[in-house]
C-alpha cells in the first residue's frame, strides 16, 4: 500500500457527505422538475380554470363536472377503451404464436427474428404515414382488393373502419417487441414437459394449451399489463391516420388526443386539460391493478 492508511481514510471521509448527492443531483433534478413537479401541478391545475396565458383561480370540481357533460370527453373515453379491448387480446396472443414460429434454430432464423422487429424500430410517424398510404382510397391494399374483385374499401373515411385500421397498425408495430419478450420466456420452459406431453399423445394444439400457455402465463400477464396501459394512452396512430381533428366529426378522437388539443397552444385550457389528464392517469393505474389482480386470482385457483 503506497498511501498511508490514515490520510486515505480522512480524505474519503471528507468527501462522503457531499459527493453522493453530487452524483445523484442531475438525475434527481430532472425527475423532480420534469416528472414529479408536473405530476403534482397537474393535480393542482385540475381544480383551476388556468389557461396558457392566464394564471387561473380555484374552481373546485367544476372541470370534473364539465367533463360529465362534454360529449368529446365521452367519445375520447369510448375510443381509448375500445382501443384497449381491441389491441390487447391481439398483442397477448399473436406475438406468442410468432415467438413459437421463430423459436427453432433453423437456418436463417436470426434474419427472420430481426426482420420481424423492424416495425418496432421505426418511428410511429413513419409507420403511421406508411399505413395511411397503404390504406389510401387509391393505395396498394385497395388496388389489390379491386384486382381480386372485392372492390375498394374506405378504410380511412369511415369512423369505425378508421379506428379498426389504427388498432391494426398498433398491433403490427408491437408484434416484434412482445415477440422478443415471449422468446425469452419460452427459453425457460423445461423441455421435459413437452416431451412428456408428446409421449402421452398430445397434439401440437393440445401441447400449446396445456404446456406452453401455463408456462408463460406470467409473461402473458406482463404483456397484457404493458400493452393495455400503452393502448389506453394511444395518440400518434390515430392522430396521423384520422388527422388532428380526429376523423369524421371528431368521432375518432382518443382521450390523449383530447388532452393535447385542449391544453396546448396559446389558447390552451390548461385547467380542463389537466382534469382530463388526471382521468388518463387514474385509468392507467386502474388497468395495471386490474391486470395484476386477475393474475393473482388465477394463481390461487
Amino acid at each position: 500500500m503506497a498511501v498511508p492508511r490514515t490520510t486515505t481514510v480522512t480524505r474519503v471521509r471528507r468527501q462522503l457527505p457531499t459527493s453522493p448527492w453530487l452524483f445523484a443531483a442531475p438525475g434527481l433534478l430532472i425527475a423532480g422538475a420534469f416528472v414529479l413537479y408536473p405530476f403534482l401541478s397537474t393535480l393542482a391545475n385540475s381544480f383551476t380554470d388556468r389557461r396558457t396565458l392566464i394564471p387561473g383561480r380555484f374552481v373546485g370540481l367544476a372541470n370534473y363536472r364539465e367533463m360529465l357533460h362534454d360529449d368529446m370527453f365521452w367519445i375520447g373515453l369510448r375510443n381509448s377503451t375500445l382501443y384497449v379491448l381491441g389491441v390487447v387480446p391481439a398483442l397477448v396472443v399473436l406475438p406468442l404464436l410468432l415467438a413459437l414460429l421463430v423459436r427453432k434454430n433453423i437456418p436463417g432464423i436470426t434474419f427472420f427474428r430481426s426482420a420481424f422487429y423492424t416495425p418496432v424500430v421505426a418511428s410511429i410517424v413513419v409507420v403511421g404515414l406508411i399505413w395511411v398510404w397503404l390504406l389510401d382510397e387509391r393505395g396498394l391494399i385497395n388496388s389489390l382488393l379491386e384486382t381480386i374483385g372485392v372492390g375498394r374499401v374506405g378504410f380511412l373515411s369511415d369512423q369505425w373502419l378508421l379506428l379498426l385500421s389504427a388498432m391494426a397498425v398498433t398491433v403490427w408495430k408491437g408484434l416484434g417487441y412482445y415477440m422478443i419478450i415471449y422468446l425469452a420466456a419460452l427459453a425457460g420452459v423445461p423441455r421435459e414437459l413437452h416431451e412428456a406431453a408428446a409421449v402421452d399423445g398430445a397434439g401440437a394444439v393440445r401441447r400449446f394449451l396445456t404446456v406452453t400457455v401455463p408456462a408463460v402465463r406470467s409473461t402473458m400477464v406482463l404483456v397484457g399489463a404493458l400493452s393495455s396501459v400503452a393502448a389506453f394512452k394511444v395518440f400518434s396512430e390515430v392522430y396521423l391516420m384520422a388527422g388532428p381533428s380526429g376523423g369524421p366529426a371528431g368521432e375518432d378522437t382518443t382521450l390523449v388526443m383530447l388532452v393535447q388539443r385542449t391544453g396546448t397552444g396559446l389558447t390552451g385550457r390548461v385547467g380542463y386539460a389537466s382534469a382530463l389528464s388526471v382521468v388518463v392517469f387514474a385509468v392507467t393505474v386502474a388497468l395495471m391493478l386490474l391486470v395484476l389482480r386477475a393474475d393473482r386470482k388465477e394463481e390461487r385457483v
Binding site: A31, L36, Y37, F39, G263, G268, V270, S277
Partner: peptide
Amino acid sequence: RRAATLAFVLAMLVPVEGIIIAQFTT
C-alpha cells in the same frame, strides 16, 4: 438514499401522457 431511489421509481411510473400539459406550462 432510499428516498432518492423511491423518487426515481415514482418518476418511472408516471405516464408521460398524463403530465404533458404541465410539462408544456413548465
